[in-house]
Amino acid sequence: MKRHFLMVDAAVLPEVFLKVLKAKELLASGEARNISAATRAVDLSRSAFYKYKDCIFDARSTQQIITVLATLLDENGALQALLGGISAAGGSVVTINQATPENGAAKVEVTVRTDTLRVSIEEMLAQLAQQRAVVEVHQGV
């Protein structure tokens, strides 16, 4: 599914969208140490934050954020290796969500700032796909 972006005046948006943006700003600036603290500071549920965090961006922001979706083998160090690969490519991890492993594998969602990448997003994903514990990896939409 191809993404379709719109520019909308913030004044007409539901308050939840503005709170998600503010929470993301608190996380990016370091004013909030984690998602729980950021959502508490803006009076937003964590579930609403997770629902919208990858879909709402400030048009003034020059940093690009992507979501890396991966399936990892349920082995010690698999997540650490994935995160190390992202870091080695110059990406900066913003959030990590990992599901409980089922049938020997776990789904992982990593939000990554790409403004400091030393390789293209495609190259980073190709490098991550070469890791032994990575079953599948792709960019989220």
Rank of each mutant, 00 (worst) to 15 (best):
A88N: 14
A78Q: 03
T100C: 07
T100S: 08
T95P: 10
D115L: 05
I121G: 00
A106E: 01
A78R: 03
N103G: 07
I86W: 06
N97I: 12
D115W: 09
V110E: 09
L79A: 11
A99R: 12
V108S: 09
A105K: 10
S120N: 09
S87Q: 08
E109A: 14
G90A: 09
L82S: 02
D115N: 13
L117N: 04
N97T: 13
L82T: 00
P101I: 03
A89L: 02
A99L: 13
A81Y: 00
A105S: 07
K107Y: 10
S120H: 04
T100D: 05
L83Y: 06
E102M: 08
I96R: 11
I121D: 04
G84D: 03
Q98K: 12
V119K: 06
L82Y: 00
T114N: 05
G84V: 04
E123I: 03
V94R: 14
T100V: 11
G85R: 04
M124R: 00
V110Y: 10
E109C: 13
V119W: 03
V112D: 05
G84H: 04
Q80Y: 14
D115G: 08
A89W: 05
A78Y: 06
T100W: 06
A89Y: 02
R118E: 15
A88Y: 08
N97L: 15
A88C: 07
D115F: 10
S87R: 10
R118Q: 15
R118V: 12
S92V: 08
L83H: 02
G104Y: 03
L117D: 08
T111V: 14
A99T: 12
P101V: 05
Q98L: 09
T114D: 02
G90Q: 10
S120W: 01
I121T: 07
Q80M: 09
L117R: 05
Q98R: 13
G84A: 04
L79H: 10
K107G: 08
S87M: 05
V94W: 08
V94K: 13
S120R: 01
V94M: 14
I96P: 11
T95I: 11
T114V: 04
E102L: 12
S92H: 11
M124V: 00
V93Q: 11
G90F: 07
L117W: 04
T114Y: 02
E123G: 02
M124I: 05
L125P: 05
Q80V: 11
P101E: 03
V119M: 06
A81W: 05
G85C: 06
G84E: 05
G104P: 01
L117S: 01
A89N: 07
S87P: 01
L125K: 07
D115S: 14
E109D: 14
L82G: 06
I121A: 02
T100R: 13
A89T: 01
A99N: 14
E123M: 03
K107C: 09
G104R: 04
D115A: 11
L79C: 09
A99V: 09
V119I: 11
N97Q: 14
A99P: 07
N97F: 15
